[in-house]
């Protein structure tokens, strides 16, 4: 079980920190990317955990993240709530 920070498989600049470790048997670690919020368990299939195998359709670039819309949009503040 590796508890060091990991590169994010989904976004190019992301670094993931340890979110939790298996309560029993040192079997897995869950990582969470501080940039794109992707999380994964170390024992998942490699198509989800390794950058080289991560599906193209789900990769995120900095531009994708910047362009992501607010859902729902934040409304204007009311002057007299």
């Amino acid at each position: 079980m590796n508890t060091d920070n990991q590169p994010c498989p989904r976004c190019p600049d992301g670094t993931a920190t340890v979110a939790t470790v298996s309560p029993s048997g040192n079997i897995w670690t869950v990582y969470m990317c501080r940039v794109c919020h992707f999380s994964w368990r170390s024992t998942e299939p490699k198509r989800r955990t390794e950058s080289a195998l991560y599906p193209e359709a789900f990769r995120l670039t900095a531009a994708d993240m910047a362009a992501a819309p607010d859902v729902p949009a934040v409304p204007p503040l009311r002057r007299n709530p």
Partner: peptide, 19 residues
């Protein structure tokens, strides 16, 4: 509070962003 200890969270589909 630690939701990861409270619930056995897991991923559903390959492209999901998390649990």
């Amino acid at each position: 509070i630690d939701l990861f200890s409270l619930l056995p969270l897991f991923r559903l589909n390959d492209g999901d962003g998390g649990f």
